[in-house]
Nucleic acid binder design. Structure first.
Length: 499
RNA sequence: UCCGGCGUAGCUCAAUGGUAGAGCGGGUGGCUGUUAACCACUAGGUUGCAGGUUCGAGCCCUGCCGCCGGAGCCA
C-alpha cells in the first residue's frame, strides 16, 4: 500500500521521495517545464514537471483545474517555490476530472458563487473561514464544558412559538402543524432546574423575510441557561466568553486572518471590561453631543478618504489609454473597478451615517433599538457593548421585570464593534408564576401550551437566566466578513435553498 | 411586504437610439523556473422574458421573472 504525505508536513521530508494526492489548484508552464499547484486541504504545493520525464510531462499538460491527481517525486527546498518547498515530479497521475472547472481564480459575482457554493468551498478564503468556524465552535464548547455546564439537546420540532410568532417555519407533523425551533430556551430552563448549568448548541430557524448582510433563515446558536444566575452574572459570563473566543482565534489562526485581510488591531482590543449601558443610558447617548461629534468625525474622515479615492480614480483613468500592453490595461481596469466599488461604499456609508444621526436625534424612549441605533452604538465604542434593561413592551414575555424600574426588563444585548451589531441576546427570566401569567395575558397568549413551562414556576422556582450567541454573526465579525452568508458552509437565505 | 439598483459570451464587465466588444477561462502553437506567468492565433451571442414607441432599440416606455442592497424583525 502506498503511503501518502500531506502537503502541510512536506518540509519534514526534504530529500525523500514522496507521494501526494489532492486537487489541481493551478498550473503554469515555461516551455520545457510545467508547474502544478496541488492542494490537499493541509496546504498547497508546487510540483515541478520537467520535459525529461516524458510521460509525467504529457500527463501534466492536459490536466484541467480542480481535477484530482496523484504525484510522486522528490521533496526539495527551493526559495523559488511559494512556501519554500516543492516536489520534483517523477510521475503524475490523473484520478478523475475532464471537464472545465466553472470557477476561475478571477472575480465572480455573488449570485454565481452562491449557485456554486459546493465548489466555492474549495477556495483558500472559504477554507480559512471554515477552519476558523471550527475553532470557534470547539472553543465555545470547551468554554462551557470547563465551567461545569452540561450539554442539553433541545428539540427542533416544537409545538408553538417561544417568541413572537410569524417568524416560524411550519412543518406538517402527522396532520398537525408544528414548527422548526427558533430557540431551545424554554426547554433549557427546565433542564437548568435539573442540572444547574446547561447549554444547547444547534441550528435554529427564523422565517423572517429579512434580506440583509446580518440575516440567515437557518443559523447556529449556543444558548447557556443557569440556575440562580442574575443579570450581572450573565453579563460577566458573556464578556469572559467573547474575550476567550477572540483570543483563541487570534492565537490559532494568524495565517488565516492574513489571508482574509482581517485587520487584527481591533480584535486585540477585545479585553475586559466591556462598556455597559442601560437602554435608558443608550438612548441618552444617542441624543448626546458626544455621539453627534463622533459620527460627524467619522463622516469627515470618510469624506477625506473618498476625496483621495476620487483623485486616485481619475489618475488611473488618465493612465489607462497610455497603457500599451493589453494585460496592463486589464490590470488597470481591475484597479479602477476596485476603487469605484470602494467609492460607492464610502458614499453609501456617508449618506447612511447622516440618516442614522438624524434618526438617533428623533429616537424616542420605548421602541426597540433598530439596526441603525445598534450600528451607532457599536461604532461609538471599540469594544463590544452590553446594553441592558430594555422597555418591557419591546421584549419577550418570559423576561423578568426590573425591580427598580418596572417599565423595563432584566435583559441584555451584546453589540459587536465595527458596525457588526447584535451577537448576543438574553435575559434573567421571570421566575414568579403570577407575574409571568399576568404578562402572558397582557400579550394575549394562550397559556395552555405553556402549562409545562409554568410548572417550572410551581415546583421550586429560582432566579435564573441565560442568553443566545449567534455563531455566524460572531464569526462574520471576527473574520471581518462583509456578509453573513460566507460564515456558514451552505447558507439558507430568503429565496435561496440551492445547493 | 416596501424602497432603490442591476440583468450583454462559460465568468467579470464595456458599448451618444445607428456594424455587439475587451479581459479572464477554453482550444491551438511558442518559450527551460513560473508565482493570478507571458506572447501569438482561435472558437464562443435569440443583449432575462413578453409587448410597445421608432426609419432603426442592448440603450426609451409598460408588464413579468431573476438577482443584489437596504428597511421592518431579529442572533
Amino acid at each position: 500500500m502506498t503511503a501518502y504525505t500531506s502537503i502541510g508536513r512536506l518540509a519534514e521530508r526534504a530529500g525523500e521521495t514522496v507521494c501526494l494526492r489532492g486537487w489541481l489548484f493551478g498550473r503554469r508552464s515555461g516551455g520545457r517545464v510545467i508547474f502544478l499547484l496541488v492542494r490537499d486541504g493541509t496546504g498547497v504545493c508546487q510540483c515541478v514537471v520537467e520535459a525529461a520525464s516524458a510521460s509525467a510531462f504529457a500527463a501534466a499538460v492536459k490536466l484541467p483545474h480542480e481535477c484530482s491527481l496523484r504525484v510522486r517525486g522528490e521533496v526539495r527546498l527551493d526559495d523559488r517555490a511559494a512556501g519554500g518547498v516543492e516536489v520534483a515530479a517523477e510521475t503524475v497521475e490523473l484520478i478523475q476530472g475532464q471537464e472545465e472547472y466553472p470557477i476561475s481564480r478571477k472575480a465572480h459575482g455573488i449570485d454565481f458563487l452562491l449557485n456554486h457554493r459546493h465548489l466555492w468551498l474549495r477556495s483558500p478564503r472559504q477554507c480559512a473561514i471554515l477552519k476558523i468556524r471550527h475553532t470557534l465552535i470547539r472553543e465555545i464548547r470547551r468554554f462551557f464544558d470547563d465551567r461545569g455546564f452540561t450539554l442539553i439537546d433541545t428539540p427542533i420540532l416544537t409545538p408553538g412559538a417561544a417568541e413572537g410568532a410569524g417568524s416560524l417555519f411550519p412543518v406538517e407533523y402527522f396532520g398537525e402543524e408544528v414548527y422548526l425551533a427558533q430557540t431551545g430556551q424554554l426547554y433549557l430552563e427546565s433542564a437548568a432546574m435539573a442540572l444547574g448549568k446547561v447549554y444547547c448548541f444547534g441550528p435554529t430557524f427564523r422565517a423572517e423575510k429579512s434580506k440583509t448582510r446580518r440575516h440567515l433563515t437557518e443559523f447556529w446558536m449556543v444558548e447557556p441557561e443557569i440556575a440562580f444566575a442574575e443579570l450581572p452574572d450573565l453579563m460577566a459570563l458573556a464578556e469572559e466568553m467573547i474575550c476567550l473566543l477572540v483570543s483563541a482565534v487570534l492565537e490559532g489562526h494568524a495565517q488565516d486572518l492574513v489571508l482574509l485581510e482581517r485587520d487584527t488591531a481591533p480584535l486585540r482590543k477585545i479585553v475586559p471590561p466591556f462598556p455597559r449601558l442601560t437602554y435608558t443610558q443608550a438612548v441618552d447617548l444617542l441624543h448626546s453631543r458626544e455621539m453627534k461629534d463622533k459620527v460627524e468625525g467619522d463622516i469627515g474622515r470618510a469624506c477625506a478618504s473618498l476625496q483621495e479615492n476620487m483623485l486616485k480614480l481619475s489618475a488611473l483613468e488618465a493612465e489607462l489609454p497610455q497603457a500599451g500592453k493589453k494585460w496592463k490595461q486589464d490590470k488597470l481596469t481591475g484597479e479602477i473597478q476596485y476603487v469605484r466599488e470602494t467609492v460607492r461604499e464610502q458614499e453609501a456609508f456617508i449618506e447612511q451615517s447622516r440618516e442614522r444621526l438624524k434618526g438617533a436625534a428623533d429616537f424616542r424612549w420605548g421602541s426597540d433599538l433598530g439596526g441603525d441605533e445598534e450600528t451607532l452604538l457599536c461604532r461609538y465604542f471599540d469594544k463590544p457593548v452590553i446594553v441592558t434593561e430594555y422597555p418591557r413592551e419591546a421584549k419577550a414575555f418570559y423576561m423578568k421585570r426590573s425591580p427598580t424600574d418596572p417599565r423595563t426588563v432584566l435583559n441584555l444585548d451584546v453589540l459587536a464593534p465595527e458596525g457588526y451589531g447584535e451577537i448576543i441576546g438574553g435575559s434573567q427570566r421571570e421566575d414568579d408564576l403570577d407575574e409571568l401569567m399576568r404578562r402572558m395575558k397582557d400579550e394575549k397568549m394562550d397559556p395552555a401550551p405553556y402549562e409545562w413551562y409554568l410548572d417550572l414556576r410551581r415546583y421550586g422556582s429560582v432566579p435564573h437566566g441565560g442568553y443566545g450567541l449567534g455563531i455566524e454573526r460572531t464569526l462574520a465579525w471576527i473574520c471581518g466578513l462583509k456578509h453573513i452568508r460566507e460564515a456558514i458552509p451552505f447558507p439558507r437565505l430568503m429565496g435561496r435553498i440551492y445547493p
